[in-house]
Nucleic acid binder design. Structure first.
Lengths: 233, 233
DNA sequence: GTTTACCCTGGATCTATATCATTGCGAGAG
DNA sequence: CTCTCGCAATGATATAGATCCAGGGTAAAC
């Protein structure tokens, strides 16, 4: 029942020296308040395809992604599924918990991931004393909204070839290298609203034409200029 | 330059007795603070296709829709456009202004609309004294996010026929009546990521089969049960 | 080592939808 | 009243992508 049952976790994270602190939720917090974090925040590790939470679970915490990739999946009544968002390190998810609502997606690790589990009680307590936290939360909410709009315009519009090209461009840095492995075709399809076969064919075609190539076991590189041309068509 | 130049507006709205007050942003406000609203909030009226703001405009206010319908439009580099959200009465838009960011969409009236223009300075001032306002703002942000996710799963997935059916269902009340006129085919297409011709054909087909029919000049009614069947397919 | 299972790729249809083009209608201009 | 002009409806055609199927590679399971 509990989505967390199979997770590995440990308490006592060193939040004050967190490498993400500057980018993280509590960036504006006074040092003395960090003691509160110490007790409450848990470290979570997920293997590929492990679930963080599921649609309808009671929302008791928000999560910051520290490493890896997380997908948010939504389902239609008929059972078909769509990946509506991808979380990268420093992103925050499960915000609906702060409004007392159950989670609205399945959150699943795309690759091995590490996260911080932040109980909503803690957020509420700190928020009462730190108005800047609210500002920061709104900023996160807005980030998520912008990301959703991007998915609508970039990944749900145009031909399948354009969508795949746009997705690759977004995964890669501007120099054409990417630090993450290529998604499997099924996930790609669920992100782009196409079938796995079409995704597979297009990736294979791009590889043949030298637009992308494997670079090591957990990464790929691509030709941004050519991909951009394909994306614009 | 100013997107508001051609709008009709008047000041001195009666916010305290606003019909939307219960649903509105300031629902939790103490009565004595309403005097602040009186001076700052403006009433705006837009005709069909009139713009409220455009992408990149400096964000100086948020807007509450009081009547009518508003579309948020986003553009791809290649010029193709997509309607990413629809605002109904009591919805709030332009939230990015509160973060000091320029507007990220074109906001255009789909039908004649009336709105309240709420300067961000006012929101910030009231927010400092009313923590509940932040809560309410987060709630609005989350609403927008949920709406965006809905568009991804319902309006960007499945066949064109399914999408049109789902859109009609969402426009109509559960009893199959709708208070708003049918969109023109171009807007429909831009919402669903299909062409105007396909939208036209499907609407015509639905009319022929009795799934929808005009009911008066500014409204339509539909057969929810049948439409639901089509949407699920 | 062998088997099993899964994923990627590719071929062969088939169909939904884009695309291009035409007609008809209704509103507004002159 | 007539002439545009824009939009809905519809036809004809082309094609992208879904669908169904099969082969082959790789990794885990036995």
């Amino acid at each position: 029942m509990n989505a967390c049952s199979s997770e590995l976790w440990e308490s006592g994270t060193d939040c004050q020296n967190c490498s993400l602190r500057a980018a993280a939720l509590f960036a504006g917090l006074a040092d003395e308040q960090f003691s509160l974090l110490h007790d409450a925040i848990q470290d979570i590790q997920l293997g590929p395809d492990q679930e963080l939470y599921r649609v309808g679970d009671a929302g008791k915490a928000v999560y910051t992604l520290r490493s890896g990739l997380l997908k948010l999946v939504q389902y239609l009544p008929d059972g078909s599924r769509r990946i509506v968002r991808l979380l990268r390190p420093a992103d925050l998810t499960g915000l609906e918990a702060l409004l007392g609502q159950p989670y609205q997606h399945d959150a699943v690790a795309l690759q091995a991931a590490t996260l911080c589990r932040i109980p909503i009680d803690l957020v509420n307590k700190l928020g009462a004393q730190n108005p800047s936290l609210h500002q920061e939360l709104m900023r996160r909410w807005h980030q998520a909204l912008s990301a959703a709009d991007t998915w609508l315009t970039e990944f749900s519009t145009g031909t399948a070839r354009q969508r795949v090209a746009r997705l690759l461009l977004r995964m890669a840095d501007s120099d054409g290298t990417s630090s993450c492995a290529l998604f499997n075709r099924k996930d790609m399809a669920a992100m782009l609203g196409i079938t796995t076969e079409t995704a597979s064919r297009l990736i294979a075609e791009f590889k043949r034409n030298g637009l992308i190539r494997q670079s090591g076991p957990a990464g790929f590189s691509c030709d941004p200029k050519e991909l951009f041309r394909v994306a614009a068509d």
